[in-house]
Amino acid sequence: MPEHPSEPLIHARELTKRFGTFTAVDSIDFDVARGESFGFLGPNGAGKTSTMRMIGSVSPISAGTLRVMGMDPATEGSRIRARVGVVPQQDTLDNELTVRENLVIYGRYFGLARAEIGRRADELLEFAQLTERAGDQVEPLSGGMKRRLTIARSLINEPELLLLDEPTTGLDPQARHLLWDRLYRLKQRGVTLVLTTHYMDEAEQLCDRLVVMDKARIVAEGSPRELIERYSTREVAELRFGPDVAEGLDGRLEGIAQRVEHLPDRVLLYADDGEAAASAVHQRGLKPETVLVRRSSLEDVFLRLTGRSLIE
């Protein structure tokens, strides 16, 4: 089925996934435009991975409509998968093969010619900074290297759409930044990125637009900036009190900020001027042990929308 030029790359209406009586994805709507970088932000169990698997055409939808590149995953799964790259949450490398063979055989699954695969494999090894490890077995590679190889593998078919499920979970900060850099380059090349994450910094770094998911539903949608503006203040003052003080705080912080959130370990004051809010606290005779004033992040958006913290 030919794809209409103005049609979104992914189009979902009332998309639902049920496993028996459990509803993993509950009637969600979204569109992803070509060239866009789109994120699903939410805690574990929100339904992000189930959504990604439906888009990747490996998980039949239970109800609703889903079109990927103008095609129906139920009948044209194979043709969709031919044009999609997938980076699953857990690395699924072929441990029985070497680094380079992993790329080559994966290219063969897409029916590419050997010569073409050879050329792409060399480029991708370079891209993933794994050229020196090409002949090595996969098992002893570091977590960051395995992740980069998984991403390189997902690019062997030069996909128009790249699905990344929690791409940097479990990596150290250095490896994360290297990976972000690689993903940013792909975005520059016009590859449409769809990713899930429960890291707000990752969402802010990589996503043009994102939806916040919670309990199988979409609770908000917009660019990171828009979401922060809509659901939070410019700044946040984070106050930590000793355990005795924290007990008796009820009502004593009212009126200082636009919104006050009491978390188990700290109190958040949402205000456009965080410093002013913090000094107002001192003026009321309260002595927090630590004070941190920072800009609002998606974490705050999520807290506002769900009443819960992203990483619990």
């Binding site: 194979s78 043709r79 998968r81 031919a82 997938v86 699953p88 699924t92 699954y109 029916g111």
Partner: peptide
Amino acid sequence: ASILATPL
């Protein structure tokens, strides 16, 4: 699992 993500 990774092969299922390809056209196979």
